[in-house]
């Protein structure tokens, strides 16, 4: 947790983050740093406050106290769209796509969001190859190239999860907040997703919230263990695996 870090190397940092829901403390003076280019995993039992944390980082929930810094600036009070436009992209635990749009149009929307404002009323998006070509490339990259024209709502669950990631990376963000990207996937799909995330490692800084421990230990450079909104341990995977407190609180259950 502590230790002096080069502030330039930090992409995202939370400092004494606090969030209460009524009497329940969901985030309890939580501090951590995500270094540039690393995959930082957040693990913890159900109810540890992982999704609450992601919501605060992405801007859908405002923290009650503390500070969030991203890429050199204080983003604590910024709205979700402002953070997204600064290059902080997120994916959702519960698939959050545009079901009545084609897979391609889902990605087009993600790219369009970063092309200045969209108060352009006349020219059809269908004709805009500067949006559609990169969108196709992104779908190709996540393995959905052949499914570009299928309605997103008609994609299989695993494909929807891939689309979810495609939308997050489409805008070439500086950092990805991944909220359980493997949620609801079979072992084979999970492995494929893990392989994909490893392939983009280094391209984006990532904060990964995930239940699949195989994936976490295979991918993460740093792991922070969250219990009742507090970080009980943080460090490289080997240290975490060896940590007695973590084993008792979490890993031991498995």
């Amino acid at each position: 947790m502590t230790g002096v870090q080069d502030p330039l190397a930090s992409m995202l940092s939370a400092e004494s983050l606090i969030k209460n829901f009524g009497g329940i403390v969901a985030t309890d003076s939580l501090s951590f740093d995500v270094a540039q280019g690393e995959i930082h995993a957040i693990i913890g039992p159900n109810g540890a406050g992982k999704t609450t944390l992601i919501s605060q980082l992405s801007g859908t929930l405002m923290p009650d106290g503390g500070q969030i810094r991203f890429d050199g600036s204080d983003i604590t009070r910024m709205t979700a769209p402002q953070r997204a436009r600064r290059g902080l992209a997120r994916s959702f635990q519960i698939t959050s796509i545009f079901k009545d749009f084609s897979a391609l149009d889902n990605v087009v929307l993600a790219i369009q969001a970063h092309r200045g404002h969209s108060f352009r009323f006349w020219r059809p998006v269908v004709d805009d190859l500067s949006l559609r070509d990169p969108a196709r490339a992104v779908l190709e990259e996540v393995g959905l190239g052949a499914r570009a024209d299928v309605l997103a709502g008609n994609l299989a669950h695993g494909e929807q999860r891939q689309l979810e990631i495609a939308m997050a990376i489409a805008s070439e963000p500086k950092m990805l907040l991944l909220d359980e990207p493997m949620a609801g996937m079979g072992p084979e799909e999970s492995e494929r997703m893990t392989a994909y995330l490893r392939s983009i490692k280094g391209r984006y800084t990532m904060l990964l919230v995930e239940h699949d421990m195989d994936a976490v230990f295979a991918l993460a450079d740093t792991i922070t263990v969250l219990v009742y909104g507090r970080a009980i341990a943080s460090g490289p995977p080997d240290t975490i695996r060896a940590n007695a407190e973590v084993r008792a609180a979490y890993l031991g259950e498995d």
């Binding site: 769209p81 997204a84 992209a89 959050s96 079901k99 087009v108 929307l109 969001a113």
Partner: peptide, 25 residues
């Protein structure tokens, strides 16, 4: 069918996601 229209339709389909993508819907 314009970029503007896509944003409005996207907001109807999934407003939260639109905001997460960076649109002040």
């Amino acid at each position: 069918n314009s970029p503007f229209g896509m944003v409005v339709r996207g907001a109807k389909s999934n407003d939260n996601r639109m905001q997460a993508l960076g649109y002040p819907t």
